Amino acid sequence: MICRLCPRNCGAKRTETVSGGVCAMPALPVAARAMLHRWEEPCLTGEHGAGTVFFSGCNLRCVFCQNAPISQEGAGRPVTVSRLREIFHELIAQGAACLDLVTPTHFTLSILEALGEEPWPVPVVWNSGGYEKPETLRLLEGRVQVYLPDLKYALPGPAEMYSGAADYFDRASAAILEMFRQTGPYRMEGGLLKSGVLIRHLILPGELENTRRCIDWVAETFRPGEVLFSLMSQYTPQPGAEGRLGRHVTRAEYRAAAEYMANCGIADGYTQERTSAREEYTPEFDMRGI
């Protein structure tokens, strides 16, 4: 395939065995772990956890990525479409509250094939960095029940500096609007999210203005009861991090962001304890479950 699935539009040749593009992945899926993941938002984990598949590769190059071994360094194991479908069934049999597909964008076509046309007994969750094309997302309509996008940046400066994507906000905001068009207002049953959009934002140290601008857009774009918002404090400095990124988010920064979120009228969603900024909450990417 000549790949134009994401906003990079790099036109890379990706085949079953040949990797290419910014994601540096072949056309068939590569994954590094399948597990019941208990560290997603409570509405996704349920009693046993989210049935999470961590895919390798990414169309963003975030310098602070906690999953860098798989997102940027290529760790992972190739899986066939039929094996991926088996993994989905295995996770559901283990009691998964949802199928949580992490960084799936560059494998969209294979994932759609693995999902098939029939409904699944739990919601399918598209857990992405938010850097998506609406036309690619439209392929997922009716097959994905919950969208879990990041809204990393509203300002082009940090978007370019940290992820090499100055156009991030334009792309992510358009993508989130398409996600909402597909799902409509979020729907909960028994404390679990069955359909809708849950927008995540990770506060970066020293970047409170970027956080405020992201919150502004959500508050101005959606009415109460339409989307969920998760304000995350789990930024963890990665090896070699320098400058602002060399430290954790401070209590004062997180308190200021949470107060701003509340003052903007965003009450549907989650805030996160600062103790979440711990390395042990990142799973081992040891191919278990694959």
Results as ranks from 00 to 15, higher is better:
residue 2 I to R: 09
residue 10 C to Q: 07
residue 19 S to K: 12
residue 19 S to T: 01
residue 20 G to F: 15
residue 21 G to R: 08
residue 24 A to D: 12
residue 30 V to D: 15
residue 32 A to Q: 02
residue 34 A to W: 09
residue 36 L to M: 07
residue 37 H to T: 12
residue 38 R to K: 14
residue 45 T to S: 09
residue 45 T to M: 08
residue 46 G to F: 13
residue 47 E to D: 14
residue 49 G to A: 07
residue 49 G to D: 03
residue 50 A to Q: 07
residue 50 A to G: 04
residue 50 A to P: 12
residue 52 T to V: 10
residue 57 G to E: 06
residue 62 C to K: 00
residue 62 C to T: 04
residue 65 C to V: 07
residue 66 Q to T: 10
residue 70 I to T: 05
residue 73 E to Y: 06
residue 73 E to L: 10
residue 74 G to Q: 01
residue 77 R to H: 11
residue 78 P to W: 09
residue 78 P to V: 06
residue 78 P to R: 13
residue 79 V to T: 01
residue 81 V to M: 00
residue 84 L to R: 10
residue 89 H to C: 03
residue 90 E to N: 14
residue 94 Q to W: 12
residue 97 A to W: 15
residue 99 L to S: 06
residue 101 L to N: 04
residue 103 T to E: 01
residue 107 F to T: 04
residue 117 E to N: 12
residue 121 P to L: 09
residue 122 V to C: 00
residue 126 W to D: 05
residue 127 N to K: 08
residue 129 G to M: 04
residue 129 G to Y: 12
residue 131 Y to E: 12
residue 133 K to T: 09
residue 138 R to Y: 10
residue 140 L to F: 06
residue 142 G to C: 13
residue 142 G to K: 08
residue 148 L to F: 03
residue 149 P to Q: 00
residue 151 L to V: 08
residue 152 K to M: 10
residue 156 P to G: 02
residue 157 G to T: 07
residue 160 E to T: 00
residue 165 A to H: 04
residue 165 A to S: 11
residue 166 A to M: 08
residue 169 F to W: 06
residue 171 R to N: 06
residue 175 A to Y: 02
residue 178 E to L: 04
residue 182 Q to F: 08
residue 183 T to A: 11
residue 184 G to C: 00
residue 185 P to C: 06
residue 186 Y to E: 03
residue 188 M to S: 06
residue 192 L to C: 03
residue 193 L to H: 15
residue 193 L to G: 07
residue 194 K to Y: 14
residue 195 S to E: 06
residue 198 L to R: 01
residue 201 H to D: 14
residue 201 H to L: 13
residue 202 L to H: 11
residue 207 E to R: 06
residue 210 N to A: 14
residue 210 N to I: 11
residue 219 A to N: 09
residue 219 A to H: 04
residue 220 E to N: 09
residue 222 F to D: 01
residue 228 L to K: 07
residue 231 L to R: 00
residue 232 M to P: 02
residue 232 M to Y: 14
residue 236 T to D: 05
residue 236 T to H: 15
residue 241 A to H: 10
residue 243 G to F: 08
residue 244 R to A: 15
residue 250 T to H: 13
residue 252 A to G: 05
residue 255 R to C: 08
residue 264 C to Q: 12
residue 267 A to L: 05
residue 273 E to P: 10
residue 276 S to C: 13
residue 284 E to N: 06
residue 285 F to H: 02
residue 288 R to H: 06
residue 288 R to V: 11
